[in-house]
């Protein structure tokens, strides 16, 4: 389900990003590029550095060294757990973050996101009363309020049921179709195979692979039963 990229100028260019926590090396000179409309999945075992990489790109924490071409302000951020206020309504949450993001016309942005996420009828409902799927939609909508050229999602489908996941990926597909670069981390390699144009495979803070799902399968001989098997073999062959 790979999308078609039409522009060659990257939205996001990451060069030799390293992150240290004291003696521990969480990321080691990670470099990659992401093009407009491209969906890039970041996969890897637990503790690989996926969330660390995303949080550096989102501007939540600084890198120890390296550069990111896109300032955090131009990147939408969707954390794993819905980062919204459960006592506020959908519209109030959107309006609050639109104001904090200093969006030119907060009300118009709220209106646009309610339309885009299909939550107009729930606009006045408190977040705490929404289903997990709808909360995640609001979570994503907040990340898109400033119409960023790139959107980062940290394990966006976690805790969603299959139907909600399907709708989520449709939504993300539509975003990418509109030219937004989407980077997402996931534990579900099947989702990465189905919905990503390219993969970044991280393990122990090191970028082991950068390419399409098919290229990853070919890298391990292409004779595995499924993509997940190819991924596991890939990690195994590289000592992880």
């Amino acid at each position: 389900m790979a999308g078609t990229t039409v522009a060659t100028e990257p939205t996001l260019k990451v060069e030799r990003v390293t992150k240290r926590y004291g003696e521990r090396l969480a990321l080691r000179e990670v470099s990659f590029e992401a093009l407009p409309g491209e969906r890039v999945a970041i996969i890897g075992p637990n503790g690989a550095g996926k969330t660390t990489l995303l949080s550096i790109l989102a501007g939540i924490q600084p890198s120890t060294s390296g550069t990111v071409s896109c300032p955090p302000r131009d990147i939408g951020w969707v954390p794993q757990h819905a980062a919204v206020y459960s006592k506020l309504s959908v519209a109030e949450n959107l309006r609050l973050f639109a104001r904090l993001e200093k969006v030119d016309d907060p009300d118009a942005a709220v209106d646009r996101m309610l339309e885009q996420t299909g939550l107009r009828e729930r606009a006045d409902d408190e977040l705490g009363k929404l289903s997990g799927g709808n909360r995640q939609r609001v979570n994503i909508a907040v990340g898109l309020l400033s119409s960023p050229p790139a959107l980062l999602l940290d394990e966006p489908s976690t805790s969603l049921d299959p139907r909600q996941r399907e709708r989520l990926w449709e939504f993300i597909g539509a975003l990418a179709g509109g030219g937004t670069t989407v980077l997402f981390s996931t534990h579900n390699v099947g989702e990465a195979d189905r919905y990503a144009d390219r993969l970044l495979v991280l393990a122990d803070g090191e970028l082991l692979f950068h390419g399409t799902p098919r290229e990853l399968e070919q890298a391990v001989g292409g004779d595995t039963y499924d993509f997940e098997g190819a991924f596991v073999r890939f990690l195994h062959e590289r000592g992880h």
């Binding site: 989102a58 501007g59 954390p79 980062a83 919204v84 973050f97 904090l100």
Partner: peptide, 10 residues
């Protein structure tokens, strides 16, 4: 509410 990570982005 996990909002801190969002707020802390500047």
């Amino acid at each position: 509410e996990n909002a801190f990570t969002r707020l802390a982005r500047g």
